[in-house]
Amino acid sequence: MSATVQRLAGTQPSLDPMIHLVAEDMLRVNDAIRNRMTSEIPLIPELAGHLIAGGGKRMRPMLTLASARLVGYSGSKHHGLAAAVEFIHTATLLHDDVVDGSDLRRGKRTANTIWGNPASVLVGDFLFSRSFELMVESGSLRALKILSNASAVIAEGEVNQLTAARRVDLAEDRYLEIINAKTAALFAAACRIAAVVADRPEAEETALDAYGRNLGIAFQLVDDAIDYTSDAGTMGKDAGDDFREGKMTLPVILAYARGDAEQRAFWKDAVEGRRDSDEDFAQAIGLVQSSHSVADTMARARHYGQQAIDAIAPFPAGAAKDAMIEAVEFAVARAY
């Protein structure tokens, strides 16, 4: 990667520089999150708090705050917008876990396994509503447009993924289209809105959008690779969840394309739900490893990571830029 990243060689990349960079701002964001989670209906803050306090790094709102630092913004509108970003993310997680039937999220039981699917969906709707309140209060129509559009794109991506589920013939370009929508869109919007509230030129908006979008794609590619390389303790979800849910992630798409007739038959049975035992998952791991599909997925993640770093090259050197570069390295290094 870039020379800036190369100087980090030999050290494990971390989010710590970004965490320290935005620590003071994050206190205000957390206050906004707590204030907007309140409700006279006790189940709402209880269920929402279960996920929001569940150990997530809050990377997306931190990206809003770090991007604001990068463009030299000294106001306070980004605090509420960063909270809105976190609410959008949390709402989508609540809905995703219902759709996927997931049992673990960040190493804890998912909300839907504790309170049931209807409560999870409705509290997700509540958080979406709170996020729009925060957007409106920012007073920036453009920020509202960017985040509301991202919310719609995320929903489209989830529907696209749902219609592609258990389709062994899923093309790689459609897969990238899905993750660009369901994951990368919010990363891009989270970064872009900082330039909007700072009233920076369009070129800086576009650069931050590109940084966030490429980081989001890299982040999702690594997540997909981890499903075939890690365990539940490391992942915060059950190992093999993607496999058992019949998801055609990039490692599977590549392994299927590179397989012989017997291997393709295995993948077809697995994706369509006829091969989902522990032994089948072990075989799947062997196939993605022997076909170099995980290694190539990670290579592509590094490519998108470099694209993210290149996008912010025009910005001046400093703590914010260094932290954002290392955040990319952290995103990719999670698989190792």
Rank of each mutant, 00 (worst) to 15 (best):
N35W: 02
N35P: 01
R36P: 02
S39W: 03
I41D: 13
L43E: 13
L43V: 15
I44K: 11
E46L: 14
E46A: 15
L47R: 04
A48T: 00
A48Y: 00
G49V: 03
L51E: 01
I52A: 07
A53V: 00
G54C: 13
G55H: 13
G55Y: 12
G56D: 10
G56V: 08
K57H: 08
R60C: 07
T64R: 12
T64P: 13
A66D: 05
S67R: 04
S67L: 09
R69L: 00
R69V: 01
R69C: 14
L70E: 06
V71Y: 10
G72L: 09
Y73E: 13
S74F: 00
G75T: 07
H78C: 06
H79A: 07
H79F: 15
A82L: 03
V85A: 08
V85F: 10
I88C: 08
L93D: 05
L94P: 02
D96C: 06
D96E: 07
V98A: 03
D100T: 05
D100C: 08
G101P: 12
R105N: 09
R105L: 10
R105P: 08
R106S: 08
R109N: 12
R109A: 15
R109P: 11
A111F: 02
T113R: 14
T113V: 14
T113Q: 14
T113H: 11
T113M: 12
I114H: 05
N117A: 15
N117W: 05
P118Q: 11
A119E: 13
A119H: 11
S120G: 09
V121G: 00
G124C: 04
G124Q: 05
D125N: 14
L127A: 05
